[in-house]
Design a protein around this nucleic acid. Structure first.
Length: 271
DNA sequence: AAGCATTCCAACCGCTAGAAC
DNA sequence: AGTTCTAGCGGTTGGAATGCT
């Protein structure tokens, strides 16, 4: 349940609460020193049991009443990001990754909003995923993860492969989140579609390909060709854009290069 | 085996918005 | 209307785990 870092017997420091000039208050607050750092198993149990009996909310008083020497904020975070029974742990599936890329492209760093569409995943986890995996690749390409160029690389190279992968395996996320919504990804084996109305009320209007700006992408060919990297050596014709200039761009980008740092294998290693 | 570098993620921080008083 | 409290968000950090030399 708890990670190694969180189960360690408290490397967390204990910090004094802020003091003022009132000696009585100083004494009171000295008695209620606040702990910080990794949570111990005992603390976790205390929090879980208290919430099971009394429910969540009113985090500051909850922390006091439960006898936890933590801030309400810390308790809330621990519960939401780790202890909640429905928190899904472990690596992101291809479905999850696909959805994150897609939703981030339209909403930006709205982690909690994105997390709402990934059952069991927390905003913190998605944020970490983005920063550690996605931004790393953007850095390797010498561009910003929020730049149009990087987004185009995702649209035409990463996402089609993930979409393919989604089709090849049973998926709970896709079933739950995408079911019923009209969404299309151009996988290497053709257009991948599913349908859902789960985004209808939240301005989610479909997959990447509905909004692709082909002209702009075609114009970025030079930049792409300059990158001595390859995404998908096995990229086949069917997932390439119809635009002939852009097709050349993808070919140039994916062919004849030695290092494959963003291969399918890479993505699956991440999982 | 040891030391160093990198990756990953839990936890913290500062800030904001809305509710309660 | 102003103040305080609470919840929530996104950015950042610390340190354990892992990989590399």
């Amino acid at each position: 349940m708890a990670s190694s870092s969180s189960t360690q017997p408290s490397s967390g420091a204990t910090i004094p609460a802020p003091l003022d000039d009132d000696p009585q208050r100083q004494e009171e607050e000295a008695e209620t020193e606040l702990r910080r750092g990794p949570w111990t198993v005992d603390e976790d149990l205390t929090l879980v049991n208290y919430i099971a009996d009394n429910g969540e909310g009113r985090w500051n008083s909850l922390a006091r009443c439960a006898g936890l020497k933590r801030t309400g904020k810390s308790c809330r975070l621990r519960w939401l990001n780790y202890l909640r029974p429905d928190v899904k742990r472990g690596n992101f599936t291809a479905d999850d990754q696909l959805l994150i890329l897609d939703l981030h492209s339209r909403w930006g760093n709205k982690w909690s909003k994105i997390a709402q569409h990934l059952p069991g995943r927390t905003d913190n986890e998605i944020k970490n995923y983005w920063r550690t995996r996605v931004q790393k690749h953007a850095k390797q390409l010498n561009c910003d993860a929020n730049s149009n160029k990087f987004k185009d690389a995702m649209k035409y190279l990463w996402m089609p492969r993930l979409a393919d992968r989604c089709l090849q395996q049973p998926s709970t996320t896709r079933d739950h989140v995408l079911s019923g919504h009209s969404m299309g990804y151009m996988g290497s084996s053709g257009l991948v579609t599913s349908s859902s109305d789960s985004f209808a009320s939240d301005s989610y209007d479909g997959g990447f390909y509905a909004n692709a700006n082909m002209g702009e992408i075609a114009n970025s060919g030079d930049w792409m060709q300059e990158q001595n990297q390859v995404f998908w050596p096995e990229l086949n014709q069917s997932c390439q854009p119809q635009d002939s200039e852009l097709s050349g761009w993808v070919q140039g980008f994916s062919g004849g290069l030695a290092e494959n740092f963003w291969s399918l294998e890479d993505i699956w290693k991440m999982q």
